[in-house]
Write a protein that binds this DNA or RNA. Sequence first.
DNA 1: ATATAATAGTGTTCAGTTTACACTTTTAAA
DNA 2: TTTAAAAGTGTAAACTGAACACTATTATAT
Lengths: 231, 231
Amino acid sequence: MQKPFQINRAYKEVQQITVAVDCLIFGFNDGNLELLLVSRSFEPERDRWSLIGGFVHNDEDLDDAAHRVLTELTGLDDVYMEQVRAFGKAKRDPYERVISVTYSALVLKKDYNDELVKSYKAEWFPIDNLPELIFDHKEMIDAAMKRLRRRVKSGPVGFNLLPEKFTLPQLQKLYEAILGEEIDKRNFRKKLNSMDFLIKLNEKDKTESKKGAYLYKFDEDKYNYVKNFNI
Amino acid sequence: MQKPFQINRAYKEVQQITVAVDCLIFGFNDGNLELLLVSRSFEPERDRWSLIGGFVHNDEDLDDAAHRVLTELTGLDDVYMEQVRAFGKAKRDPYERVISVTYSALVLKKDYNDELVKSYKAEWFPIDNLPELIFDHKEMIDAAMKRLRRRVKSGPVGFNLLPEKFTLPQLQKLYEAILGEEIDKRNFRKKLNSMDFLIKLNEKDKTESKKGAYLYKFDEDKYNYVKNFNI
DNA sequence: ATATAATAGTGTTCAGTTTACACTTTTAAA
DNA sequence: TTTAAAAGTGTAAACTGAACACTATTATAT
């Protein structure tokens, strides 16, 4: 019989591993769901597209590391972010052993620091037209998209991709972009209405149509009374 | 403006961190959903209950590390296992910085090596009557349970907790144990029937009732034709 | 041998939810 | 003043989920 595994657990005898975070930064720009990617400015794999990532410091919470990396790139501070999962194949990065934990962030284009983004050679790509990516980053994106689709149906997560005031056509386009399918306008509105957490404002947005669409805002308090969010 | 983050990415200048896997080993024993826990045989926190865990080796896939740890404890080889997520608070283990990736495993009591389990001072606990656990292990369990509940409704995952041949009352009890709620017998069977991936055998199991219940097995091929598994 | 008790097995109805579907309104621009 | 583009609005049919009660079988006890 093998020796009890715990023997390996004697502290300080254990191999340590480089741990990274990779951030999937989603934005909803001009009606498209987009992802912010960077062109690597260092070897190996210089000039290839990659998710934005960084290493986890020893005294730093994993979640904090992800926020730090996001802030360094975008200047954004207060962003909705969730862990997706850890990617840990021994050879996923062929140059060095790195375990990477991915995070999915939803950001508002207008809020982030454009200068910063440009200085990193970062670019937005529509989610259905991504360039080739290094390592297992495509797999990370697939996992995050799957998760986003699930989350967005069961909670008011998508609202993080819209400004405080938004129109129903915008909201619908956002859902269509995330889910990758068309939604019936009347059914969509009926559902939103029944959940009763949108506040209709006395203002119209006329930038996207001649008629103009009423602006709404999200009522966080009321949302808490909604038992089953379900779109 | 800060320097580009990539500067930190120069390989070999980066802090390394101890990475562990912790396994949530679920079993369905005597009608209860149970979790296998070990009493720590080493300091710190000796004799307190914990998930079974181990450290990730440098040349080892994360998933493989989880399987290795599971095999060391149970002798089981071919087990359904999924990553839950990474837990990475800097102080989650107060003795040393350890990032832990949790995995959820569904095992069959009859298959595992009882001797091995005993030699580790491991014990099964019903999921609704767990002892106090070290560190953030309770939080890990909560996350894994939430995930299990979701997964079991949307795919034939629960079948990994039953032997190859099982009765419908057993299957129902399993779902009730996982979901923590009673299910109507007729509705449950109706749903299973409509999805058409169970094969009724010409055998009865008489160990659990006088009348005896028909045995069924799961038809993996047919499952692939089921578009929407949904219980 | 008969009665009992425990579990297996089986359909229908009602309510709620989801889906499909088409026309009117508004207004900027031609 | 016409046109074109997008906003806004309700109803009917199909489907899905939930509630609900009795009969069948047989080991065990009397």
